[in-house]
Design a protein around this nucleic acid. Structure first.
Lengths: 102, 102
DNA sequence: TCTATATAACCAAATTTTTCGACATATTGG
DNA sequence: CCAATATGTCGAAAAATTTGGTTATATAGA
């Protein structure tokens, strides 16, 4: 039994935690599933299909971006978002690797 | 753009959502990291190393068990928990497979 | 420069989650 | 059966998250 509970989360897991938190919300999952392969969507498009207010969508996009699940770029007045597949994959692989040691 | 926001979460994702929610909490991550390879721990042992009350630990264990991240078995007075590696791996693989289509 | 538009930031209310103590249930040993 | 132990459940308080209106900022176009 590993007893150092309060320090048990390795550095490498800090971001993984964020990713899991980001993916653990139903609205955020729905947002991710709105993207078609390779697609980039701006905030207005996501608000359009969602059932939430613009501020709520903005909040969720911020969480997804800060976790690295989405990347974004401002083009003109609009901010476009897209799946950061590499980042998501890396988090999943890190947990897979941990499982292998268990 | 996939527009059916309200129905966008496939059946197969229902459990994945639970898994990510379960792994998205710091205390629950610490609990998982308390297990050494192949180890089974009872509630008392987990309470002992955690900084939470017994009921709070019980609450988190319930969430982890309902998500399938942990399995449990009652032996005498004690309930032993262990990592359900297969379940965790399946959820991760499901998301990996989704990423491949993106 | 002025206006319209897209988005982010802020803030307070609503909702959900977490937390813990008290109580309930189950099991073991005497 | 009774007492002690391990765990689960309930209910209320505390904390955190979510939500949406309002305000601020940036950009494009007239």
């Amino acid at each position: 039994m590993n007893r150092d509970y309060t320090t048990a989360i390795p550095d490498a897991w800090q971001n993984i935690a964020q990713v899991f938190t980001a993916l653990g919300d139903e609205h955020r999952q729905r947002i991710l599933l709105t993207f078609e392969p390779g697609e980039r969507l701006n905030v207005g498009q996501i608000v359009e299909v969602s059932t939430l207010s613009r501020s709520a969508v903005s909040h969720h996009l911020k969480i997804l971006r800060e976790a690295g699940v989405l990347d974004s770029e401002k083009i003109g007045k609009e901010v476009y978002f897209w799946l950061n597949k590499k980042q998501i994959r890396e988090s999943l692989v890190a947990v897979m690797d941990y499982l292998k040691t268990q």
